[in-house]
Design a protein around this nucleic acid. Sequence first.
RNA 1: GCCGGUGUAGCUCAGUUGGCCAGAGCAGCUGAUUUGUAAUCAGCUGGUCGGGGGUUCGAAUCCCUCCACCGGCUCCA
Length: 646
Amino acid sequence: MINITLPDNTVHQYQSGTSGLEIAKNISEGLARNVLSVKVDGEVWDANRKINKDARIQLLTWNDLEGKATMWHSSAHLMAEAIEQLYPGVKFGIGPDIENGFYYDIDTGDKVLTDADLLTIEKKMIEIARGKQAFIREEVSKEEALRHFTQKGDEYKMELIGELTDGEITLYKSGSFTDLCRGPHIPDTGFIKAVKLTSIAGAYWRGDEKRKQLTRVYGITFPKAKELEEYLVLLEEAKKRDHRKLGKELELFTFSQKVGAGLPLWLPKGAQLRERLEQYLKQVQKEAGYLPVITPHIGNVNLYKTSGHFDKYGADSFRPITTPVEGEAFFLKPMNCPHHCEIFNTKPHSYKELPIRYAEFGTVYRYEQSGELHGLTRVRGFTQDDAHIFCTPDQIKPEFKAVIKIIMRIFKALDFNDFITQISLRDPKTPEKYIGSNENWEKAENAIKEVAIEEGLNTITVEGEAAFYGPKMDFMVRDAIGRKWQLGTIQVDYNLPERFDLTYIGSDNEKHRPVMIHRAPFGSMERFVAVLIEHCAGKFPIWLAPEQVIILPISEKYQKYAEKVSQFLINSDIRALIDDRSEKTGRKIRDAEMSKIPYMLIVGEKEESKNQVSVRKQGDGDLGIFSLESFAEMINSEVKRLQEVK
RNA sequence: GCCGGUGUAGCUCAGUUGGCCAGAGCAGCUGAUUUGUAAUCAGCUGGUCGGGGGUUCGAAUCCCUCCACCGGCUCCA
């Protein structure tokens, strides 16, 4: 007998060799019908795998992330089986579950899969799923595994097996399809009721662009058809928040083929929005002791040779600009730090001056691969809310903390609650990718880790994501369709001070090397605005809204009064405009609602006679009648409240 | 850069067995209407059918090529 502990801490005795599924049946038939897999002492197993030891178990269903993952992983197998039946001879790479569904990388040989084929595959999957094929786990030796895939001629699987340890290899068989797989899987394909293959894409084998590109098919499955429908509706809703769509609709920014791909053009409303964000941050930075600097858009190639960027990125940059006579070469500046180093170097510094914080909204240009460009989130010309802090080694921690404070203040003011804080460290396996001494790297990495703990930040740590010159802490958020983007960043740099030979005179009257901290709370104005648009679905907080109030006179007769209201608001520092078209009020309201202007003021006979306005809030409807003064007061206090988060 | 897809008016989209001067709604303009909480009516303007090349008596439609955009991959100082 074995002792099985359930999540409620009750202990039950079962025969050794009882499966999770059998335990579920013992609890209730209904539960058993929904069990996808089982967690045994923290490891997810097949629901029908025999348990031979005392264990703490948790039965996993569609309501558990791990249950979903099991189902999706099994769905990848189901799809592979369908594809193999439809297009014999294809070879398979890897086919994992992902956050929303699964994919499988496939070498389809000469067959090119298209969207039309996806429908055929979906049908086949449903057909196979209905057959309720069991997933059968089989432990095999390395030799047997190799034999199976050699016979099949699948070199990808053979490569994978070659890296596995003999004795730890399992195959999973379902229907006509056998796959190298560590599992676990759902009991049978019958759990899969709804299938949607979402897209088709190229993906390099093992993520290496020098190796063969396989065809990746993405899909998602559900235990009920209704859930698939709901998922598709959700996707549609998310698309409505897409900043590229809203940016066009709200006239915030645009792109022009003539100007060039990845070079955003800010329209008046977008420019106003961005300027307000910049003004806000400038104020915050002023309070925090930053000094403004301004540097040009190009810099001599030698500047980047000194900084090390030329060696690292020169080949992948826009080609240098050359002069007609002297034969000099200049780069469009890809970052501001080398310029700021030269500013630091204009005169000797005392330790008493440090930290020195140079801030600049600096526009930089980077050559991004054409396939990478994406709305405002990935562009070739963008403006960083950049600053470089030159400090003593002892000041790193307090300065780092002060920057975190600024970032948190901004995120709070904009209601960004759902972000990820990532600490990016070196990849210890490829030290050649980084410049700077081991000792300095360790110092910097430790400083960041300590600050994160001391500030109580909930962080994830990723090795190999550091910049080539130092470790960093990034603040990331998700866009409307779930993609992660880096916004704020704080980076420690021991390297540039070396390369630019930056020094300060310490209390000992000796020269010392300062440390640099690069930081950008927004990251780039372009990306930040993109994420902000998606975050608020285009309904900006009132202090940022390009237009705050629109006045809707009932008819031409009240035009004069509308102008009076408008003047009053403008004098009260409120951005107001008048809809003086000869349209019905319903129409004016509809148009104002759709352009997401926060407040509508309807004025007619009633209002004019008492010097009042009827207030309608975007999305919320009628708020009733206000005097001009009390409305202005309400708006101004709302603006103040939102902006003054500390 | 790579794989797959898309590209028709400012916007959203019809228009594929190749064939009258390429269509609709919205937006815009003009006029009528003077309007009370999500679309008043009428008329008009507007398109090198992404660019270039080719096949054909004839191309938005077929072929080639380039560009941009979309979904991924790789990359991201």
